[in-house]
Design a protein around this nucleic acid. Structure first.
Length: 308
DNA sequence: CGACAATGTGTAA
DNA sequence: TACACCTTGTCGA
């Protein structure tokens, strides 16, 4: 999935292209027909992301709550006034990047030909919900959550989530340190717990633990507060890069064959999906284990020392 | 063409 | 821990 950085990019894009506009809302697939009927014809007031949750606030206090889950994605298109990526969501290959708008004639109807824009194309595949303004459209497919809820219900969702490192909220860092170091649960498990830190997924978990040289199976209780603080700071930095780049890149220019441009996907990660390949730092084969039903990648050498 | 995996989560056993 | 959810690209027969 789309980890937190993708959801923040989505919130920004919805704000840029749809905020203040009256939207036609439909469910071509039919599974969201009732919710679409409630939202149809309302104006989008604002959009917000917290962790992996997207909230589209419509007028009269109705919120479209979307969680992309493992394979959800939004596709966009429109006329020249409709700028931004044409697809944000589940990458299907390692390191796949978003498709930039105007990337060519791809049937998405967003190749910049203003005169040619005659509304959204026929829905392709299982489109759960379609939003459309006078200038563009957005299609959602594969989401695990897509619901029309009240503002109060949206706040209840937020209360269930831990701090989001992409929000500079007072106390978020301290709350994270407290929650990460309170239990004897392995750090690999805790970093995937959205109540501990919202927005981290399998890639950022593996990559940040490597960057900090921390053993993924170390019990949270054994991590010092200062080391936990460094985990938060590094996560915030690398996820902010993800928001900027539209990709998860956790390696630095010194590891790239072409240091003056962003790296190809094979050079973008230290350990994620690199099991069996040599660690970029020490050469040891990257390890892989099934951990709580998810793949966990780490370097047994770089991430085995005591973390003080 | 079918099986399978995928940056996720909720629920049941 | 297992499976359901539900979509699509990849890979092997």
């Amino acid at each position: 999935m789309p980890e937190g950085h993708s959801i923040h990019r989505l919130a920004r894009q919805f704000r840029d292209v749809f905020a203040g506009r009256r939207l036609a809302v439909s469910s071509p697939q039919g599974r969201f027909a009732a919710g679409a009927a409630v939202l149809d014809g309302r104006t989008l007031v604002r959009s917000a992301a917290h962790g992996k949750h997207l909230f589209l606030h419509f007028e009269h206090g109705i919120v479209l709550h979307v969680h992309l889950g493992l394979y959800g994605a939004w596709d966009f298109g429109g006329d020249r006034e409709f700028r931004g990526a044409s697809s944000i969501g589940a990458p299907r290959r390692v390191g796949e990047r978003e498709v930039p708008a105007g990337a060519g004639a791809d049937g998405a109807g967003n190749d910049g030909d203003t005169a040619g824009y005659a509304g959204p194309p026929e829905p392709v595949g299982a489109v759960r919900v379609r939003l459309a303004s006078d200038h563009g459209w957005a299609d959602l497919r594969g989401a695990t959550t897509c619901a029309a809820i009240t503002e109060a219900e949206a706040e209840a969702v937020l209360r269930r989530l831990g701090p989001d490192p992409l929000h500079n909220v007072n106390g978020g860092r301290d709350a994270f340190i407290k929650r990460l170091t309170a239990r004897s649960t392995p750090l690999a498990t805790l970093l995937m717990d959205q109540k501990v830190i919202a927005g981290v997924g399998n890639v950022y978990r593996a990559e940040v633990l490597f960057r900090q040289r921390i053993d993924p199976l170390l019990p949270g209780r054994l991590l010092t507060a200062s080391a936990a603080g460094r985990v938060w700071d590094d996560t915030a930095a690398v996820m902010a890069d993800g928001v900027r780049d539209g990709r998860i890149i956790t390696t630095t220019a010194g590891y790239w064959s072409e240091p003056n441009s962003l790296p190809p996907s094979e050079e973008a990660h230290f350990v994620y999906r690199r099991h069996g390949q040599p660690c970029r730092v020490c050469g040891t084969a990257v390890a892989l284990a099934e951990h709580a039903a998810r793949k966990l990648y780490w370097c047994p050498t770089c991430q085995s020392m005591d973390q003080a």
